[in-house]
Design a protein around this nucleic acid. Structure first.
Lengths: 252, 252
DNA sequence: ATACGACTTTGAGGCCACTCAATGACGTCC
DNA sequence: GGACGTCATTGAGTGGCCTCAAAGTCGTAT
């Protein structure tokens, strides 16, 4: 499997030294407070592609931050097929939706080799009692998730295939940009199948739209490598009032 | 405007005397604690059908509990149409999704005459500092909302018209049941149009499915009055693993 | 009682995305 | 290096839901 050498990356980086800390932690925490948080974080071995972080129904114990790689969460439909509910990129936090049921309502699986910071929830709650800012941060995270899910519902109920894929690409671009990477050229961590599953489209439709976008000069795609050639038009296709869109355009 | 006498209902009922308190408040709060919460709650005049509780973009100041009536939240699509994001029935809490943006991301409108308890958020946060249980309750609420939204995403991306409407009816029934009302016979507070909008279907499709369900003896519907005739089959159509379904069946 | 508007129902026709099927490209393992 | 499995692409045909249109029903106001 791993005949290639691993990307060189220390497996234990303290929060205060982590390049993602400004994205995943509340800004108001002092260095001292961060060290306290740091102490409760568990950093496991890297997950290989296909390995699970947790399974649907597992007891809810922790929330997780992605350090590198990519995670998808999914649940099983009645017919036993998988329905992907979210993709998580580095600096993003997952697992919060299990909080009120004491079990994870979805499974979480690595889409590529992935490093994770695990934050035991009971300790996080204890810490939250002392740092109101940490608590507000978590509530903001959940509030944000709710808004994002509602954007997704809008996409699923009102947008056609072209608009869905344009929206998805713009959204990914915006998330890469936020982490300091290029928003015009990046690598998709998911297959066409997974993309279609997430967007409520058949694989074939995803493929056709990609081909059409490429013919029209909107994107240039080779396999999982994507280059956004016409961000303005792609954004206008994606529609939406999200500030993301303007940021992408402005960075073009 | 108000030629009709108002529905007789005291406009100021303390939380400890409210029949919905066991649904909307954390159980662990003592009577004394509840009285503290009670003191910060603002109870305004009833909203008439069509009146807004808040508008998309309004500054986020409060969360709200529905005491009676029904509220819908919606946002505007790019083309300026309305996209309904949720329906709220008595005892349910809305407004939490505005927390991380400082403005409400949706508009909230009364679908019928509605009474509301308003909870100023800054005071709620202050109170939360003292009562960890209250805080956890709010986080659980948000966590639950996330799970519900993900069920909705599943509905929108995988279910056909029949399944969507069956799911919707079963879900409503379950919510009525939870409040002690009949889960087999109730009144829809939304129009066919609003239902279709929410479920990602055209009005005509909703109407056709209702007609078909009625022909097949699944439901009996006259206008907004609904009777569920065959809960077992309706549940099986709705699919899903939700415990709601079993509860409805068992109460049939 | 009547008239009006809003909502609902029903029908006819068309389109978008799905399904099925086959081929092509890629990466992996002997 | 060749064979295999997985993934992606492309084409043909179908079907579910949407759109457009019209008639029917309900509630409300005058």
């Amino acid at each position: 499997m791993t005949s290639k050498p691993n990307v060189r990356q220390p497996s234990h980086v303290a929060c205060r030294d982590c390049s993602l800390s400004s994205l995943c932690l509340p800004l108001a925490l002092s260095l001292q407070d961060i060290d306290q948080l740091d102490r409760i974080i568990k950093r496991g071995r890297p997950l290989k592609k296909g390995e699970h972080l947790f399974l649907e129904g597992d007891p809810f114990t922790s929330v997780f931050a992605v350090r590198s790689g990519a995670i998808k969460t999914y649940t099983a439909t009645n017919e036993g097929e998988e329905q992907i509910t979210s993709f998580y990129l580095p600096s993003e936090i997952l697992g919060l939706s299990g909080m009120d049921t004491d079990v994870y309502p979805v499974s979480a699986q690595a889409m590529e080799t992935t490093m994770i910071c695990e934050i035991p929830f009971d300790q996080l709650e204890t810490l939250s009692d002392r740092f109101p800012e940490l608590r507000r941060h978590m509530m903001r995270l959940m509030s944000k998730k709710i808004r994002e899910d509602q954007q997704m519902m809008m996409l699923l109920s009102k947008k056609n295939a072209d608009e869905r894929i344009a929206t998805f690409l713009i959204n990914l671009a915006s998330r890469f940009r936020r982490r300091g990477f290029s928003s015009q050229s990046f690598r998709l961590s998911m297959s066409r199948n997974e993309m279609g599953n997430y967007l409520g489209l058949a694989v074939e439709t995803v493929s056709r739209v990609f081909t059409r976008f490429q013919k029209n000069g909107l994107i240039y795609a080779v396999g999982k490598e994507i280059e956004i050639r016409d961000p303005v038009q792609l954004c206008s296709l994606a529609g939406g009032k999200s500030v993301d869109l303007e940021q992408i355009i402005s960075s073009a």
